[in-house]
Amino acid sequence: MNPASCGTPAANPWLAFPVQITGITDETPGVSTYELQLTDAEVARNYRFQPGQFNMLYLPGVGEAAISLSGQSESGDRLRHTVRLAGNVTHSLAGLGVGGRFGLRGPFGTPWPMEECRGRDVVAVAGGLGLAPLRPAIDAILNAPDEYGQLTILYGARTPEHLLFEQVYPDWRQNGAVVNVTVDRSLPGWQGHVGVVPLLVDRMQLPDPENTVFLICGPDVMMKYTVSSALNRGVPAERIWINMERNMNCAVGLCGHCQYGPEFICKDGPVLRYDRVQPMLRVEDL
Protein backbone atom coordinates (compact mmCIF):
# COMPACT_ATOMS: atom_id res chain seq x y z
CA MET A 1 0.00 0.00 0.00
CA ASN A 2 1.39 3.34 -0.95
CA PRO A 3 0.79 5.69 1.97
CA ALA A 4 1.04 8.65 -0.35
CA SER A 5 -2.21 7.72 -2.02
CA CYS A 6 -4.45 8.40 0.97
CA GLY A 7 -7.13 10.06 -1.11
CA THR A 8 -7.14 7.27 -3.64
CA PRO A 9 -9.46 4.34 -3.15
CA ALA A 10 -6.70 1.73 -2.89
CA ALA A 11 -5.15 3.06 0.30
CA ASN A 12 -6.31 2.74 3.88
CA PRO A 13 -8.74 5.64 3.98
CA TRP A 14 -8.24 6.12 7.73
CA LEU A 15 -4.55 6.95 7.55
CA ALA A 16 -3.81 10.64 8.19
CA PHE A 17 -0.65 12.38 7.07
CA PRO A 18 1.25 14.84 9.25
CA VAL A 19 1.12 18.50 8.22
CA GLN A 20 2.67 21.67 9.55
CA ILE A 21 1.20 25.16 9.41
CA THR A 22 3.53 27.37 7.38
CA GLY A 23 1.39 30.46 7.22
CA ILE A 24 -1.84 31.96 8.53
CA THR A 25 -3.71 34.82 6.88
CA ASP A 26 -6.58 36.46 8.72
CA GLU A 27 -9.35 37.01 6.19
CA THR A 28 -12.61 38.20 7.72
CA PRO A 29 -13.97 38.07 11.29
CA GLY A 30 -13.52 34.45 12.42
CA VAL A 31 -12.11 33.28 9.09
CA SER A 32 -8.45 32.52 8.41
CA THR A 33 -6.54 30.83 5.62
CA TYR A 34 -4.00 28.23 6.71
CA GLU A 35 -1.12 27.26 4.49
CA LEU A 36 -0.12 23.67 5.20
CA GLN A 37 2.97 21.69 4.32
CA LEU A 38 2.74 17.89 4.18
CA THR A 39 5.84 17.02 6.21
CA ASP A 40 6.49 13.63 4.61
CA ALA A 41 8.37 14.46 1.40
CA GLU A 42 7.02 11.48 -0.53
CA VAL A 43 3.44 12.18 0.52
CA ALA A 44 3.88 15.82 -0.48
CA ARG A 45 5.28 14.85 -3.88
CA ASN A 46 2.37 12.57 -4.66
CA TYR A 47 -0.41 14.76 -3.34
CA ARG A 48 -2.71 16.08 -6.10
CA PHE A 49 -6.09 17.70 -5.79
CA GLN A 50 -8.66 19.13 -8.14
CA PRO A 51 -10.68 22.32 -7.61
CA GLY A 52 -13.68 21.61 -5.38
CA GLN A 53 -12.16 18.71 -3.43
CA PHE A 54 -11.73 18.69 0.33
CA ASN A 55 -9.48 17.31 3.04
CA MET A 56 -10.30 16.00 6.47
CA LEU A 57 -8.24 18.11 8.86
CA TYR A 58 -7.42 15.98 11.87
CA LEU A 59 -6.56 17.46 15.25
CA PRO A 60 -5.52 14.42 17.34
CA GLY A 61 -7.62 14.14 20.46
CA VAL A 62 -10.15 16.66 19.14
CA GLY A 63 -11.48 15.23 15.91
CA GLU A 64 -11.78 15.92 12.21
CA ALA A 65 -13.43 18.57 10.06
CA ALA A 66 -14.08 18.42 6.34
CA ILE A 67 -12.62 21.57 4.80
CA SER A 68 -12.48 22.39 1.10
CA LEU A 69 -9.15 23.26 -0.43
CA SER A 70 -9.06 26.96 -1.25
CA GLY A 71 -5.83 26.78 -3.20
CA GLN A 72 -2.17 25.97 -3.13
CA SER A 73 1.08 27.93 -2.98
CA GLU A 74 2.73 29.11 -6.21
CA SER A 75 5.27 26.32 -5.85
CA GLY A 76 2.39 23.89 -5.51
CA ASP A 77 3.71 22.10 -2.46
CA ARG A 78 1.64 23.91 0.13
CA LEU A 79 -2.10 23.52 0.51
CA ARG A 80 -4.47 26.27 1.54
CA HIS A 81 -7.59 25.86 3.61
CA THR A 82 -9.84 28.77 4.45
CA VAL A 83 -11.50 27.97 7.73
CA ARG A 84 -14.25 29.59 9.77
CA LEU A 85 -14.24 29.15 13.53
CA ALA A 86 -17.20 26.86 14.06
CA GLY A 87 -16.60 23.85 16.28
CA ASN A 88 -13.97 22.10 18.39
CA VAL A 89 -11.68 21.23 15.52
CA THR A 90 -11.56 24.70 14.01
CA HIS A 91 -11.09 26.32 17.42
CA SER A 92 -8.21 23.96 18.21
CA LEU A 93 -6.71 24.68 14.83
CA ALA A 94 -6.91 28.40 15.55
CA GLY A 95 -4.97 27.79 18.76
CA LEU A 96 -2.00 26.20 16.98
CA GLY A 97 -0.26 29.06 15.17
CA VAL A 98 2.49 28.88 12.55
CA GLY A 99 4.62 25.78 13.08
CA GLY A 100 1.70 23.85 14.60
CA ARG A 101 1.40 20.22 13.56
CA PHE A 102 -1.62 18.04 13.02
CA GLY A 103 -2.95 15.57 10.45
CA LEU A 104 -4.78 15.49 7.16
CA ARG A 105 -6.61 12.88 5.08
CA GLY A 106 -7.52 13.50 1.49
CA PRO A 107 -8.19 14.76 -1.04
CA PHE A 108 -11.76 13.54 -1.17
CA GLY A 109 -14.92 14.26 -3.12
CA THR A 110 -15.91 15.28 -6.60
CA PRO A 111 -14.27 18.31 -8.26
CA TRP A 112 -15.83 21.20 -10.12
CA PRO A 113 -16.49 20.15 -13.75
CA MET A 114 -13.54 21.97 -15.29
CA GLU A 115 -13.80 19.96 -18.52
CA GLU A 116 -17.41 21.03 -18.93
CA CYS A 117 -16.33 24.66 -18.38
CA ARG A 118 -13.80 24.51 -21.18
CA GLY A 119 -14.84 26.72 -24.09
CA ARG A 120 -17.91 28.00 -22.26
CA ASP A 121 -18.80 31.06 -20.25
CA VAL A 122 -18.57 30.30 -16.53
CA VAL A 123 -20.49 31.94 -13.70
CA ALA A 124 -19.11 31.27 -10.22
CA VAL A 125 -21.70 32.17 -7.61
CA ALA A 126 -20.76 32.14 -3.93
CA GLY A 127 -22.29 33.06 -0.63
CA GLY A 128 -20.18 33.71 2.48
CA LEU A 129 -17.39 31.20 2.94
CA GLY A 130 -18.60 29.44 -0.23
CA LEU A 131 -16.08 31.49 -2.18
CA ALA A 132 -13.26 29.39 -0.70
CA PRO A 133 -14.09 26.09 -2.47
CA LEU A 134 -14.61 28.05 -5.71
CA ARG A 135 -11.27 29.80 -5.56
CA PRO A 136 -9.19 26.95 -7.06
CA ALA A 137 -11.66 26.82 -9.98
CA ILE A 138 -11.46 30.60 -10.42
CA ASP A 139 -7.65 30.43 -10.34
CA ALA A 140 -7.63 27.58 -12.87
CA ILE A 141 -9.82 29.54 -15.28
CA LEU A 142 -7.91 32.79 -14.93
CA ASN A 143 -4.59 30.96 -15.37
CA ALA A 144 -5.72 29.59 -18.73
CA PRO A 145 -7.96 32.34 -20.14
CA ASP A 146 -7.78 31.04 -23.70
CA GLU A 147 -9.39 27.77 -22.72
CA TYR A 148 -12.52 29.26 -21.20
CA GLY A 149 -15.12 31.84 -22.13
CA GLN A 150 -16.09 34.79 -19.98
CA LEU A 151 -15.76 34.23 -16.22
CA THR A 152 -18.27 36.05 -14.03
CA ILE A 153 -17.95 35.92 -10.26
CA LEU A 154 -21.05 36.79 -8.26
CA TYR A 155 -20.49 36.96 -4.56
CA GLY A 156 -22.54 37.85 -1.53
CA ALA A 157 -21.57 38.24 2.10
CA ARG A 158 -23.33 39.41 5.25
CA THR A 159 -21.59 42.80 5.46
CA PRO A 160 -18.72 44.48 3.60
CA GLU A 161 -16.31 43.33 6.28
CA HIS A 162 -17.29 39.70 5.65
CA LEU A 163 -16.19 39.82 2.02
CA LEU A 164 -13.65 37.05 1.57
CA PHE A 165 -10.45 37.47 -0.50
CA GLU A 166 -11.36 41.12 -1.16
CA GLN A 167 -7.74 42.00 -1.85
CA VAL A 168 -7.68 39.78 -4.97
CA TYR A 169 -10.84 41.08 -6.68
CA PRO A 170 -8.80 43.73 -8.55
CA ASP A 171 -6.49 40.99 -9.86
CA TRP A 172 -9.45 38.90 -10.93
CA ARG A 173 -10.93 41.88 -12.77
CA GLN A 174 -7.61 42.68 -14.36
CA ASN A 175 -7.36 39.10 -15.59
CA GLY A 176 -10.68 39.45 -17.36
CA ALA A 177 -13.25 38.32 -14.83
CA VAL A 178 -16.44 40.25 -14.14
CA VAL A 179 -16.73 40.48 -10.34
CA ASN A 180 -20.04 41.54 -8.85
CA VAL A 181 -20.41 41.74 -5.13
CA THR A 182 -23.40 42.27 -2.88
CA VAL A 183 -23.94 42.39 0.88
CA ASP A 184 -26.96 41.63 3.02
CA ARG A 185 -26.32 44.61 5.23
CA SER A 186 -24.41 47.77 4.33
CA LEU A 187 -21.82 49.50 6.48
CA PRO A 188 -20.76 53.19 6.30
CA GLY A 189 -18.74 53.79 3.16
CA TRP A 190 -20.18 50.86 1.18
CA GLN A 191 -20.99 51.92 -2.37
CA GLY A 192 -21.91 48.53 -3.80
CA HIS A 193 -25.02 46.40 -4.08
CA VAL A 194 -27.17 45.51 -1.09
CA GLY A 195 -29.33 42.43 -1.44
CA VAL A 196 -29.18 38.69 -1.91
CA VAL A 197 -26.96 36.90 -4.41
CA PRO A 198 -29.69 35.55 -6.69
CA LEU A 199 -30.56 39.16 -7.59
CA LEU A 200 -27.09 39.45 -9.16
CA VAL A 201 -27.97 36.48 -11.34
CA ASP A 202 -31.25 38.15 -12.36
CA ARG A 203 -29.39 41.28 -13.45
CA MET A 204 -26.20 39.87 -14.97
CA GLN A 205 -25.12 39.87 -18.60
CA LEU A 206 -25.89 36.39 -19.89
CA PRO A 207 -25.43 36.40 -23.67
CA ASP A 208 -25.46 32.64 -24.20
CA PRO A 209 -27.30 30.99 -21.29
CA GLU A 210 -27.49 27.58 -22.94
CA ASN A 211 -23.72 27.46 -23.13
CA THR A 212 -22.98 28.88 -19.70
CA VAL A 213 -21.87 26.75 -16.78
CA PHE A 214 -22.90 27.76 -13.26
CA LEU A 215 -20.72 26.77 -10.32
CA ILE A 216 -22.51 27.54 -7.05
CA CYS A 217 -21.36 27.28 -3.47
CA GLY A 218 -23.05 28.67 -0.40
CA PRO A 219 -25.73 27.92 2.17
CA ASP A 220 -28.50 25.56 0.99
CA VAL A 221 -31.10 28.32 0.75
CA MET A 222 -28.81 30.63 -1.23
CA MET A 223 -28.04 27.83 -3.70
CA LYS A 224 -31.70 26.99 -4.07
CA TYR A 225 -32.66 30.54 -5.09
CA THR A 226 -29.56 31.03 -7.19
CA VAL A 227 -30.47 27.91 -9.15
CA SER A 228 -34.02 29.24 -9.64
CA SER A 229 -32.65 32.49 -11.01
CA ALA A 230 -30.26 30.69 -13.34
CA LEU A 231 -33.02 28.42 -14.63
CA ASN A 232 -35.22 31.47 -15.19
CA ARG A 233 -32.47 33.00 -17.27
CA GLY A 234 -32.49 29.94 -19.54
CA VAL A 235 -29.51 28.05 -18.17
CA PRO A 236 -30.13 24.29 -18.58
CA ALA A 237 -30.33 22.27 -15.34
CA GLU A 238 -27.51 20.05 -16.50
CA ARG A 239 -25.12 23.01 -16.73
CA ILE A 240 -25.67 23.99 -13.09
CA TRP A 241 -23.38 22.53 -10.43
CA ILE A 242 -23.71 23.01 -6.70
CA ASN A 243 -21.30 22.29 -3.86
CA MET A 244 -23.17 20.84 -0.91
CA GLU A 245 -22.24 20.59 2.71
CA ARG A 246 -23.33 17.85 5.07
CA ASN A 247 -21.93 16.28 8.22
CA MET A 248 -18.93 14.24 7.10
CA ASN A 249 -17.32 11.76 9.41
CA CYS A 250 -15.44 9.23 7.29
CA ALA A 251 -15.22 11.12 3.96
CA VAL A 252 -15.25 7.86 2.00
CA GLY A 253 -18.91 6.83 1.87
CA LEU A 254 -18.73 4.31 4.70
CA CYS A 255 -20.24 6.06 7.74
CA GLY A 256 -23.60 7.22 6.40
CA HIS A 257 -23.63 10.69 7.97
CA CYS A 258 -23.60 12.83 4.85
CA GLN A 259 -26.40 11.10 2.97
CA TYR A 260 -28.69 13.30 0.97
CA GLY A 261 -31.29 11.07 -0.59
CA PRO A 262 -29.27 8.55 -2.57
CA GLU A 263 -26.13 10.69 -2.58
CA PHE A 264 -23.21 10.38 -0.23
CA ILE A 265 -22.10 14.00 -0.24
CA CYS A 266 -18.51 12.94 0.61
CA LYS A 267 -17.97 10.70 -2.41
CA ASP A 268 -20.81 11.44 -4.87
CA GLY A 269 -20.36 15.14 -4.00
CA PRO A 270 -19.67 17.66 -2.67
CA VAL A 271 -19.95 18.98 -6.22
CA LEU A 272 -23.18 17.67 -7.74
CA ARG A 273 -24.95 18.41 -10.96
CA TYR A 274 -28.18 20.15 -10.16
CA ASP A 275 -30.51 17.89 -12.15
CA ARG A 276 -29.27 14.99 -10.03
CA VAL A 277 -30.38 16.52 -6.74
CA GLN A 278 -33.27 18.63 -8.01
CA PRO A 279 -36.11 16.49 -6.58
CA MET A 280 -34.50 16.47 -3.15
CA LEU A 281 -33.87 20.18 -2.89
CA ARG A 282 -37.63 20.68 -2.63
CA VAL A 283 -37.92 18.56 0.51
CA GLU A 284 -37.23 20.00 3.95
CA ASP A 285 -35.10 18.12 6.54
CA LEU A 286 -34.03 15.41 4.10
Binding site: W14, L15, A16, P18, T39, Y58, P60, R101, F102
Partner: peptide, 14 residues
Amino acid sequence: ATAERTDSGWEMRT
Protein backbone atom coordinates in the same frame (compact mmCIF):
# COMPACT_ATOMS: atom_id res chain seq x y z
CA ALA B 1 -6.35 4.77 13.52
CA THR B 2 -4.03 5.96 16.26
CA ALA B 3 -1.99 9.08 16.85
CA GLU B 4 0.96 9.38 19.20
CA ARG B 5 2.62 12.64 20.15
CA THR B 6 6.32 12.72 19.32
CA ASP B 7 9.04 15.37 19.67
CA SER B 8 8.30 16.58 16.17
CA GLY B 9 4.52 16.39 16.02
CA TRP B 10 2.33 13.32 15.62
CA GLU B 11 2.96 9.77 14.53
CA MET B 12 -0.23 8.62 12.85
CA ARG B 13 -0.88 4.97 12.10
CA THR B 14 -3.57 2.52 11.16
